[in-house]
């Protein structure tokens, strides 16, 4: 089952990319794309990627929607900071957060979500302590950021990946 999934999921993704690049759904491009995608996915197997336990696609969709909303919101916030709206003194700083999640794909997803959101950057991960270093552009209360990351992102990701 999991072996079957490690071939089919990347192959389907590669086929979708191929068809988007071709811009057509003609049988010729579908067949050629399917052959190429299966071959490439089979080669990828040689890399022996660590097994993932991706569950609850519905929770993943909900998380994606929440991330999209958050990205749009923080775009405005960061644009406001850069253009100098709201003349209060602003400090930026680092926050170290100890994580409960250990699943590698979950951690990767968390890192990408945090960095893709304007205003926060994932700087470093310490695997021995299982903690991460976050840099926040507009740091008011560090404890609040710990709470936001853990509740908003880590909890749903643990639900999905663990």
């Amino acid at each position: 089952m999991s072996r079957w999934r490690t071939i089919v999921v990347p192959a389907a993704g590669l086929l979708a990319i191929w068809l988007l690049l071709q811009g057509s759904l003609s049988p010729g491009s579908v067949i050629l794309g399917a052959i190429l995608a299966t071959g490439a996915a089979w080669v990828l197997m040689a890399l022996d990627p660590p097994a993932s336990s991706f569950r609850r696609p519905r929770a993943a969709l909900g998380l994606a929607a929440r991330v999209a909303v958050e990205v749009v919101r923080s775009n405005w916030a960061v644009a406001g900071i850069i253009l100098g709206r709201g003349r209060r003194p602003r400090t930026s700083g680092f926050v170290r957060i100890s994580l409960d999640m250990r699943a590698p794909y979950g951690l990767a997803a968390l890192a990408c979500i945090i960095t893709a959101t304007p205003g926060t950057v994932w700087v470093e991960y310490d695997s021995s302590e299982n903690s991460m270093l976050l840099h926040v552009l507009d740091l008011i209360d560090g404890e609040e950021w710990v709470r936001i990351i853990k509740e908003r992102y880590e909890a749903p990701l643990m639900e999905i990946f663990e």
Binding site: A79, S92, F94
Partner: peptide, 19 residues
């Protein structure tokens, strides 16, 4: 241009690369 330190500046390009 406007932000003061490197760690602040690294937040700026995410505006262009997301929305």
């Amino acid at each position: 241009l406007r932000l003061g330190s490197f760690y602040e500046r690294i937040h700026a390009p995410t505006l262009g690369t997301t929305l």
